[in-house]
Design a protein around this nucleic acid. Structure first.
Lengths: 242, 242
DNA sequence: ATTACTAATATACGAGTAC
DNA sequence: TGTACTCGTATATTAGTAA
């Protein structure tokens, strides 16, 4: 009954995975209970009930049509699938971190304005343990990393609350601990080992649309100076759990 | 009851994943029903039953100790987990194939002897659609690929039956369609696009021990000539489903 | 054709208990 | 402490049926 986030059994998650494989992650996928039941090795009544429960749990949106239904996995449902995927990655790749690659861009310079606002800055001091340099390092992710970015959803973030002043409201954000690795101007590694910066954080609005290829990074010091970065330099960002 | 391969529900698979995360893939892991029950959010009776069912299905081997039990995921259980992992990879990476990288080695030259035996050759003609060149291309996989090789378990193989003559028996094998890509002597790509060979097959004994870093490839023609390969040249092998 | 209800049945669960 | 049995109860499932 509840519209809010509900837990769902493993049978339901398997059903969610099936409709996701049918394309319900990228948009709406057309399915029928009978076809689902066949692949689930169960009756179509069971398939129907699984979909209902997934909808109740907020993992699936459904739209009935005459000859079936169109379903779409919600962001909550995708988080559930990402958590499961992260388990299997840890299992077979021994890889708990998310590694993203991209190039340094000048960005819009808007990050500088926002993060120096006291409403955010105080939370950074409290929850990250430092006052970040008044500017963000902007990274343009390559195609693969823009997709892999969604894996960050499975990592426990540090929450930054939204707030407001007299003029407007400022939205909530998420931070993840990150190590910035300078791979080099041409994709080759620069020095031996000194081109890493370990105490940075990726910061992103709480509600990010997927496939976004822009990543913003904050750190106690100016990363462009610390790592001698120029626009176009290649970076690898290792994002980890809180 | 059946000792042979049995299907198992999604709840049991989740349990298998848990003990695998505890290290039951690499060796035996020590678990207790109570601790498992806690993580499964269920009673310890349920945890006990799940482990029993996994054992009955041949996915888990158990050994009781005084204060708990030591469990190990069987190869059958690992296959089940790999299949699940493959689903999630397809879901989030759009990647159905398994890509392995390594370098050309001279190998032992034993492959030449085996594959030209008529007991195998006739099956190659029937099931692969060609008579392979009388020799195998040996590839030494890098560390990551030696691990990733296990993902081939999730791909449907072409079966090659074992057989025997007067002297001895010859074991069964599995084949997977593969594309061989010549990456170059130094890790750089050679020409533009002509350094790929698409109609090859990876061949491996039906029972392979994991972590094996040797890969053998057969093809209608001599791959060393077709791709101008020398020992030490870097290759990427794209293994796909039947 | 669908989806989803109701009702009978099969299965899973957890409390208690034995070892 | 463990694991795993029995057994009464809760939940899930399927057949039949309605919309």
């Amino acid at each position: 009954m509840s519209q809010s986030t509900g837990r769902v059994g493993h049978d339901e998650l398997a059903t969610l995975k099936l409709v996701a494989l049918d394309g319900a992650l990228e948009g709406r996928a057309t399915v029928t209970c009978a076809a689902l039941a066949d692949r689930l090795d169960a009756s179509n009544q069971t398939a129907s009930r699984r979909l209902q429960r997934l909808e109740d749990a907020g993992h699936l949106e459904r739209e009935m049509t005459g000859d079936g239904q169109r379903v779409a996995v919600t962001s909550e449902g995708e988080r559930a699938l990402q958590r499961e995927y992260a388990d299997y990655r840890r299992l077979f790749e021994g890889d708990a971190d998310v590694s993203l690659s991209g190039v340094v861009t000048s960005g819009m310079g808007e990050g500088r304005h926002y993060i120096s606002l006291s409403g955010y800055m105080e939370q950074f001091r409290d929850r990250l343990g430092y006052e970040p340099f008044a500017g963000t390092l902007n990274v343009e992710l390559d195609e693969e990393s823009a997709r892999a970015r969604a894996r960050m959803d499975a990592l426990d973030p540090i929450g930054i609350d939204g707030w407001e002043d007299d003029d407007r409201t400022y939205g909530p954000a998420f931070c993840w601990p990150a190590t910035v690795e300078h791979v080099g101007p041409e994709g080759r590694r620069n020095g031996a080992d000194g081109d890493r910066y370990a105490d940075a954080h990726v910061i992103a609005p709480k509600r990010t649309h997927h496939g976004d290829d822009q990543l913003e990074i904050i750190a106690p010091e100016k990363l462009r100076d610390e790592l001698a970065l120029d626009d176009g330099d290649h970076l690898t960002i290792h994002v980890s759990e809180q």
